[in-house]
Simulated scan of single mutants.
Amino acid sequence: MSASDGRPLRSGTQSIERAIAILECLRLSDRPLGLSDIASEVQLTASTTHRVLRAFVRAGYIEQDQATEQYRLGIGIAVLGQRAIENSGYQLARPVLDDLSQRSGESASLAVRRGTEVVVIDRATGPAPLRFDHPTGSELAAYASAMGKALLAFSASSIDAEVARIPTLERFTDRTITERDALEAELSVTASRGYAINIEERYDGVSAVAAPVLSTRGRAHAAIGLQGPSVRLPAARLDELAPLVRDAATEIAALVIRH
């Protein structure tokens, strides 16, 4: 294994890379995995994989089912995640999310960026029986998400540079933007009006509106969004809700962001 500049990785660095690969393997799986599955996925020997897994199990970051001997992420990971949110200050946003959800009648979500994806770090469930929620921890392709588009449009990099970093524009629905020129145009509109919309680009029958949580320099640290059934959220309704979402984003920025 080599570093990106071609130099051999030191053994300590290599161990960290292996550990991260195993955690990522379990994070991306929607079910517990056996030793051989994990070893195959991360391209390590079974003995090396087992050694890393045992260390994580002892620390509480991975759990092993004693009956099936399969592995899954442990509660220790959740504790780390909660501490990270607390350290970031975003737990202060919960009352704002709750208020936005009640005033709009839709579910509200708060997300941060992770590479070319967005991760939902908190949510407020809408009051309507028919609704759409993003569970906490959900990962969404940024280009097919209203919150993601808000984060891309207000990043520190140019829009064309952000679009170029996305490996592929996978099609999720008939309305997913899969052409880079079209995505750049969409993000330019988002930057101009100050909010993003998503009409069935990720899920059929689901639409959303989102705004960036901005620093004083105008860079997005997070995004807040409303999402729900398209029958209740046509384009005109999304535009009507946009000021509420932008006000909520401004309120969160005042509570959390210090620069």
Rank of each mutant, 00 (worst) to 15 (best):
L92E: 02
H50Q: 10
R103G: 13
G60A: 05
G76I: 05
T45D: 15
A84S: 11
Q82F: 01
G89V: 06
Q64H: 03
G105C: 02
F56W: 07
L44H: 03
G34P: 06
Q66N: 13
L35S: 03
G105I: 06
E41W: 07
V96C: 04
E63T: 06
D37W: 00
T45R: 08
E106M: 13
Y61N: 06
S36M: 09
V96R: 05
S101L: 05
G76W: 10
Y61H: 08
S36Y: 11
L92W: 09
I22D: 05
Q102N: 10
S29Q: 04
L73S: 05
L33Q: 05
G74Y: 03
D99V: 02
P32N: 03
R94A: 04
I38T: 01
E63W: 05
D30N: 04
N87A: 12
R54W: 08
E106L: 12
R94C: 01
A46K: 10
I62C: 05
I77E: 03
L33G: 04
Q91T: 14
D65E: 12
Q66T: 12
E86L: 09
R54E: 08
Q43M: 12
Y71W: 03
D37Q: 10
T68I: 06
G34V: 09
D30Y: 05
E69Y: 15
Q102G: 07
R72E: 14
L92A: 11
R94V: 06
I85T: 07
A46H: 07
A55C: 06
H50R: 11
S47Q: 10
E41Q: 11
Y61E: 12
Q102L: 14
R54M: 15
Q102M: 13
V96Q: 03
Q102C: 08
E24M: 12
Q82N: 14
I22L: 12
L92F: 11
H50I: 04
S40D: 02
G34D: 13
E86D: 13
R54F: 15
A46P: 00
L53H: 01
E41R: 10
A46C: 05
A93C: 01
T68Y: 14
V79W: 12
E63Y: 04
E41M: 09
L28C: 11
Q64I: 14
E41F: 10
A39G: 02
I77V: 15
V57A: 06
V42G: 04
R72W: 00
E86V: 07
S36C: 00
E63Q: 06
A46Q: 13
A78H: 09
